[in-house]
Design a protein around this nucleic acid. Structure first.
Length: 254
DNA sequence: ATGGTGGATGGTCCA
């Protein structure tokens, strides 16, 4: 089973940049999307259906903002939208689909880059998200939690660790949160497979950052450790240019 | 410290 995750920075903009061709070539069974920036009736579901994908989405209340989706060639047994917490669900950041005993989550963790209030919101979210998925594990022990975490975990995950020590996304408390999260039995699949530096999933549109590979690795396929024996591969596809993020892939032998 | 770019909206906000 191949699962992709892609923060598309606006699904309608991505479609204009050949997203459908990328999707067709991806060979993915399931695709987790973040930042669809569209209401449900603005998402080009018909085009996805033509490629064999069912679409399940959860949009923000605010038009053109945030939003997540799961595209899948496999019919899910159940889909759950949101975490059941209004202040988070209002922003359309979490959707889950169950396939047999595997649950797949598409998550868009908040950015803290637009001010102190949003950084506080992000830290609250991270702690509440952690509690939610830990509770979820009790009934759904096999989890794949894919998406934009808006955090670089280690210095190897960012092009300029010293220069970004005070930047949201690489703050000590965010990095510590991810360490604590992983220590509870979650695995960063890409880093499990690939220990090399200079692999990123997001680049600023500014200052020619992408051409210079001045990036951040902020998108992750996290699995519960009980799935580690099923992990076949994890990779990043920086060649895909539909967004300021690129897609990430994981293959599980299920 | 500042400014650099882009998506979606509606006459700016967010990232």
């Amino acid at each position: 089973m191949i699962i992709a995750s892609y923060n598309v920075n606006g699904i309608r903009a991505a479609v204009k940049k050949d997203f459908l061709n990328w999707l067709e070539q991806s060979n993915a069974d399931i695709v987790c999307l973040q930042e669809t920036k569209a209401q449900e009736d603005q998402i080009p579901i018909f085009d996805f259906t033509a490629l064999g994908y069912q679409t399940y989405s959860f949009s923000a209340q605010k038009k053109g903002y945030s939003g997540v989706a799961i595209l899948t060639k496999i019919s899910p047994d159940k889909v759950v939208k949101g975490m059941g917490i209004d202040k988070y669900d209002f922003e359309g950041r979490f959707i889950r689909a169950d396939f047999g005993d595997l649950s797949v989550v598409s998550v868009y963790h908040p950015s803290g880059s637009s001010g102190e209030m949003r950084q506080e919101f992000k830290m609250e979210w991270l702690n509440d998200f952690e509690q939610y998925v830990n509770d979820l594990r009790k009934t759904r022990p096999k989890l794949l939690i894919s998406g934009d975490y808006n955090i670089c975990h280690e210095a190897i995950d960012i092009h300029n660790p010293k220069g970004n020590a005070k930047s949201s996304g690489f703050l000590p408390e965010e990095r510590e949160w991810m360490s604590k999260f992983l220590a509870q039995g979650y695995v960063d699949t890409f880093r499990n497979i690939n220990k090399e530096p200079h692999h990123y999933s997001w680049w600023s549109y500014r200052a020619n950052a992408r051409n210079n590979n001045k990036g951040w690795r902020i998108d992750y396929h996290m699995i519960t450790e009980n799935l580690l024996p099923k992990l076949v591969n994890a990779s990043i596809q920086p060649e895909a240019l539909q967004s300021d993020h690129c897609p990430i892939f994981v293959e599980l032998k299920l």
